[in-house]
Simulated assay, not measured.
Amino acid sequence: MTYCVGIRLHAGMVFLADTRTNAGVDQVSTIRKLSVFENPGERMMVLMTAGNLSISQSVRQLIANPPSTDVVNIWNAPNMYEAARVVGEAVRTVHRQDAAKLAESGIDFNISLIFGGQIKGERCRLFYVYSAGNFIESHDENPYFQIGEAKYGKPIIDRVVAPQTSLDDAAKCALISMDSTLRSNISVGLPLDMLVYEEGTLAVTRFVTIDEQNQYFQQLRNSWGQQLKHVFEEIDAPVWDAAPDATENVLSSANMHSKPVRVALPFGMQSAPSPAPLQALAEQPQPLLPPGPQH
């Protein structure tokens, strides 16, 4: 599988992709999923792919090698919107060529792409391209896109990233997002490709391939895990059935009357004796009285 994230900020863009691909537990390999289309000083664009590898490679080949220089292509598109249309058309071309044959073998036409960058004369732009070749663009309300195993790394980005976030903070957040995914899904793996692009440079200036030995990534993984545990331990445990104003961590107050949905016993099955009332965390057990006359 795959995890890729692209982030568009006022200061520039961050792209991060893993490199693991697999067709079963005994067919795991490394394939780079981040490609750069660069004409320094004039345009810098990044494509990241997820889904069927053969489809992804065919699409990338069509984009990189247009059949004619007389038509709009990735190298002469006047703006990023037109460049995204080129990417979408490449997806449709591969679909026309391969989708029917893939379907005969029970294989879905499965691909998704993140495409972004800057062409001289306009701002940075970021697009999510679907398997039908259509696409949407990132705006300030949604400054990032993910493809592949997105769910594990999404919460940290939602909490941290905004258009005004700095490039370094966004890069750090993307790496934490990737680390969360690596820990929860074995189909995503190292090494990672990261590209951080500063608005207006129109060239690749910061790129790194991150493996198990990368000093910063190892420090980030260890520190993030330790800090999460520390924050978790600092949060008070819940209190049950307390007065609402007794403490700030009341989960169930004494004036609440919540009940679970209980499924009735089948007809004819004897009901067990009623259990003792549930003891709340805020209650103390009552001492047992000795046998004998009670007053």
Score class of each variant (00 low, 15 high):
211 D>E: 09
133 G>E: 04
239 V>A: 09
222 N>Q: 10
41 G>W: 08
120 K>V: 10
35 S>M: 14
249 N>G: 11
20 R>N: 02
82 E>H: 07
186 I>K: 00
134 N>K: 01
290 P>Y: 05
159 R>F: 10
146 Q>H: 12
26 D>K: 08
1 M>E: 12
24 G>I: 01
268 G>P: 06
258 S>L: 15
259 K>E: 12
153 G>K: 03
227 Q>I: 10
288 L>E: 13
149 E>D: 13
256 M>N: 06
101 K>I: 05
112 S>P: 02
208 V>D: 09
250 V>K: 01
12 G>E: 03
169 D>Y: 07
158 D>R: 12
22 N>G: 14
20 R>T: 01
65 N>A: 14
276 A>F: 12
108 D>N: 12
45 M>V: 04
126 L>R: 03
115 F>K: 02
166 S>M: 02
209 T>L: 00
125 R>S: 11
26 D>M: 13
83 A>Y: 04
82 E>I: 14
237 A>W: 12
224 W>P: 00
199 E>L: 11
95 H>I: 00
92 R>G: 03
251 L>V: 05
152 Y>W: 13
83 A>I: 01
246 A>E: 15
75 W>R: 05
207 F>L: 07
99 A>V: 03
182 L>R: 00
251 L>Y: 10
64 A>N: 15
223 S>M: 13
131 S>I: 04
